[in-house]
């Protein structure tokens, strides 16, 4: 298996997020099928090196996914409050 950094080497900068996203989505889909699209979108806003670290480290990925889920739930809760008011 090649190191994750080799994913990015031949890719133009505009395609790097796309390639990282495809791999990240596959991993997150196994954890949270219903939220994979949103969680992947959130994590892709991070630095490419952080995303690479997630692809290499399941523990790091899970911690960042948990963080993203918490942020997403907080955001959605605020949206509900906003709609009620």
């Amino acid at each position: 298996e090649s190191p994750a950094t080799s994913i990015l080497a031949p890719a133009p900068s505009g395609d790097q997020k796309q390639m990282l996203g495809e791999r990240l989505f596959c991993l997150i889909q196994t954890m949270l099928p219903s939220l994979a699209a949103k969680i992947t979108g959130m994590l892709l806003e991070l630095d490419n090196l952080d995303v690479l670290h997630m692809l290499e480290s399941p523990e790091f990925l899970r911690s960042k996914v948990d963080e993203a889920v918490a942020v997403l739930q907080d955001h959605e809760a605020k949206q509900v409050v906003h709609q009620v008011m």
Binding site: G21, F25, C26
Partner: peptide
């Protein structure tokens, strides 16, 4: 804007070109 915050976060779908925040806040 309020409109874009409702659509946050941008969703990533395999095979669809990723535009990030630009996709929800043009």
């Amino acid at each position: 804007s309020n409109g874009s915050s409702i659509n946050w976060p941008p969703e990533f779908h395999p095979g669809v070109p990723w535009k990030g925040l630009q996709s929800i806040d043009p």
